[in-house]
Write a protein that binds this DNA or RNA. Structure first.
Length: 192
DNA sequence: TCAATGATTAGC
DNA sequence: CTAATCATTGAT
């Protein structure tokens, strides 16, 4: 694999999470439609982190987190939303990056009159609904054959992206750990 | 600030 | 087996 392959993801989640900002997430849904969005917000969940789903032990749900880098970990939350994670680090480490928001390219051109298109994937649950991502993808690899994969960062190049690092959203444990990153001034970020 | 809504799991 | 919890969202 290339630059965005498993070896690139075989690092601690808090190192991968900021690097994923600017990458393009591509989805080919079951109907064959292609969706693209630039990742503009991520959070890391990893070893020794009380907010991590794998903190206590391995369970059927969180098993992908303990697998090899490049797996997808998708879970169902609050009875109505799905959240997408990309597994990082090495097997046995329970480490992943939550994809929290995408800047959509598709509708920027096709629906320029819609003043809210930039909010359609502004949140982990919203991007999963828009990309038609659910638990069927959990445990599968990030790959074209799966229907979900990554492409390199486009212009403006990653080096010039202005990132903001903050604490994570919506958790009760590990609130002090600053493992959330987002693209500064992006209108697609879930919460500034 | 709060309800919706159901899978998951910690704790009996 | 059962009840509390929950990495959210949108409406009030």
């Amino acid at each position: 694999m290339g630059k965005l392959g498993a070896s690139w993801l075989a690092r601690p989640c808090e190192r991968v999470a900021p690097d994923l900002i600017g990458c393009i997430l591509v989805r080919r849904n079951p109907q064959g439609q292609i969706y693209r969005g630039m990742i503009v917000e991520t959070e890391a969940y990893g070893e020794g982190d009380p907010a991590c789903h794998g903190y206590h032990r391995q369970t059927p749900r969180n098993a992908p987190m303990f697998g090899p880098p490049g797996l997808l970990y998708v879970y169902f939350i609050y009875g109505m939303h799905h959240c997408l994670n990309i597994v990082t680090d090495r097997p046995g480490m329970a480490s992943a990056v939550l994809i929290r928001a995408l800047a959509l390219e598709h509708h920027k051109l096709s629906c320029p009159q819609d003043q809210n298109f930039h909010r359609w994937a502004a949140g982990p649950g919203k991007l999963c609904r828009y990309f038609q991502i659910d638990r069927q993808l959990s445990g599968q690899p990030l790959a074209i054959a799966t229907g979900l994969w990554l492409e390199s960062s486009p212009r403006p190049h990653k080096n010039s992206l202005e990132l903001v690092q903050t604490t994570r959203i919506g958790i009760k444990q590990g609130q002090d750990i600053p493992w959330r990153w987002y693209l500064k001034n992006s209108p697609a970020v879930s919460r500034p």
